[in-house]
Design a protein around this nucleic acid. Structure first.
Lengths: 329, 329
DNA sequence: CTGAAAGCGCTTACAG
DNA sequence: CTGAAAGCGCTTACAG
């Protein structure tokens, strides 16, 4: 592996000059530049980015942390994130933490040891406490979930409106006893969607019953128990809204194998709009989130912050449009 | 951000000593070590890895290149890869190339500019030519697909045996007119699986008809056209083996909406064993590949190669066990 | 327009 | 057991 020194010697110039042509400094004389360029090509020289990074105190790298990768929901966000990093000539390290704090810590350490310049947390992959600790020192963007009191930019959809639309769609079809399966924890999106749900019920004059709301993880067993739990409480339900396509697919599976005690003719609307909602039988009516764009925009904004090194922590929600897509359920 | 110099001054030792403590050099006197450790803690010092990397000429980083991320097949491999990197204290950059050569090139450049030490190519994410070019200079591991004549280690399953078992399962159930939907290109796994398919047919005395074999991309339209194409050739089929769960899910979708002209009672066996095969209706009989382990093992072997800097290019196939799981199709 | 030199923050062979 | 010093491969302010 040849170094800048060898290129300089071969071209008969100083390393400073080689460095200047490498960085397209317009000050170098065209003839010199061409000579250097030719030698670089001949020697097949590639600059050592380890040295450049140290010198410039910048790694041109960001990290995106995801809760998991088994849900296509996250894959799509990651895909958009990669594209944005690529478009801005940044490297991106995508990490899935699988609910393990020590894995999260290795990614945080990338920031602390100068290997990464900024981070985007997808979904609720970081606790409020962690965000508070980090937000003074590092550039952070949140993707899909935010926390009240944390002034990092968050890229998400209008969850309240989406919750309203999902509920309204079921009401429009004549469903009145609508259960709501939320995500595992009470995140900002859960709260907002429930608000929309309540608003739609109220508007239709349907009484709100808190027993119809329950949270479930993205596993078949959890979803099954949760839905059956609602039914067991004496709640006779004729519609379900889920927090994710994955949950909806599990419900369909449970209905089919009769381990979930609801009718096949139940109304079902999910959130996300991954391809999962299209390969189930029946296909699922869903709130399509602009997942690729959520990932893309999060990274784009993070890099913008990095490049304009103003410390202005513009709090801010960036709202991307969603869409209700009606399918068979 | 405090540097090693400040720690040294504060602790009343040289930077050399601080460095030794940082690297657990047993030579430093316990008293000195404790003093330094205490100062490090007080100052909340974190070493600058950019400097360490340059000094040691090592980034402790590898890259894994995947064709895409929209198939859970790849997500699972990526998950295993991340775990292996974590367990060996390496960083891993996972990149999806989406069939775009220029994206691939950015990941290759990570190697060439010293930002990454090695690479694992998943599926056929690199051409044979590229592998030939890179294999002299860099440490490479292939995951799931290999090329004859390329002496990089490949971690995969026994595709011939798996193809045999898939075919045999359908024959056992009385199917004799079995179509084979392969992957898009003629990769090593495709070739091997077809060998197994032929072997099973031969053993059962069923004539082999090449018109029953055709390739398809992982998209609904492609799969639909491919299956219909086989039928249009006058091939009356009563069984299908697919290259992926995703293809199988598309076939079920097509059968249901009657855009694919085969009977609902067709025998269907897929490859992969992702959760997709469980959320379709009916659920799909599948060859379960140890995806997490494929990813994990590929990375583990790459790091081993990196650490034992022998140039011995041990060609070699590492075969992991698969399993036929019988479900509803 | 170009070069000599300092320096980014570490590690390590060498001397003591 | 510890420190002074060289050096990893770049960039850039400064001088000319």
């Amino acid at each position: 592996m040849s170094s800048i020194k060898e290129v300089a010697k071969q071209a008969g110039v100083s390393v400073a000059t080689v460095s200047r042509v490498l960085n397209n400094d317009p000050v170098v004389k065209p003839a010199t530049k061409n000579k250097v360029l030719q030698v670089i090509k001949e020697m097949n020289y590639k600059p050592n980015m380890l040295a450049k990074n140290l010198r410039k105190q910048a790694s041109q790298t960001i990290v995106m942390v995801l809760p998991s990768m088994s849900n296509p929901y996250f894959s799509e966000i990651a895909r958009g994130a990669q594209a944005a990093a690529y478009d801005n000539a940044y490297h991106i390290i995508i990490g899935t933490i699988e609910s393990k704090r020590w894995i999260l810590d290795t990614y945080i350490n990338l920031l602390k040891t100068n290997l990464a310049e900024g981070i985007v947390f997808v979904s609720s992959s970081a606790s409020k406490e962690l965000l508070e600790e980090l937000s003074d020192e590092y550039k952070i963007v949140l993707c899909t979930e935010h926390y009240p009191g944390i002034d990092s930019t968050c890229v998400t959809i209008d969850n309240k409106k989406a919750g309203y639309e999902a509920t309204n769609e079921l009401i429009r079809r004549g469903h009145t006893r609508i259960a709501y399966i939320t995500g595992n924890r009470e995140t900002s999106s859960v709260t907002a969607r429930i608000e929309g749900y309540k608003a739609a019920l109220k508007e239709a004059g349907i009484p709100f019953r808190p027993e119809r709301i329950a949270g479930a993880k993205n596993s078949f067993e959890h979803v099954k128990e949760t839905v059956n739990g609602i039914v067991d409480k004496g709640m006779n339900i004729d519609g379900i809204i889920t927090h994710s396509d994955l949950q909806a697919s599990f419900i369909l599976k449970g209905i089919k194998e009769k381990s979930i005690a609801v009718s096949e003719r139940i109304g079902l609307v999910s959130f996300d709009g991954t391809f999962l909602a299209e390969i189930t039988n029946p296909t699922v009516t869903t709130i399509v989130q602009p997942l690729y764009e959520l990932g893309y925009t999060s990274v784009r904004i993070l890099i913008q912050k990095l490049q304009s090194d103003t410390d202005a922590k513009e709090e801010g929600l960036v709202i991307l449009p969603h869409q209700l897509v009606i399918r068979e359920t």
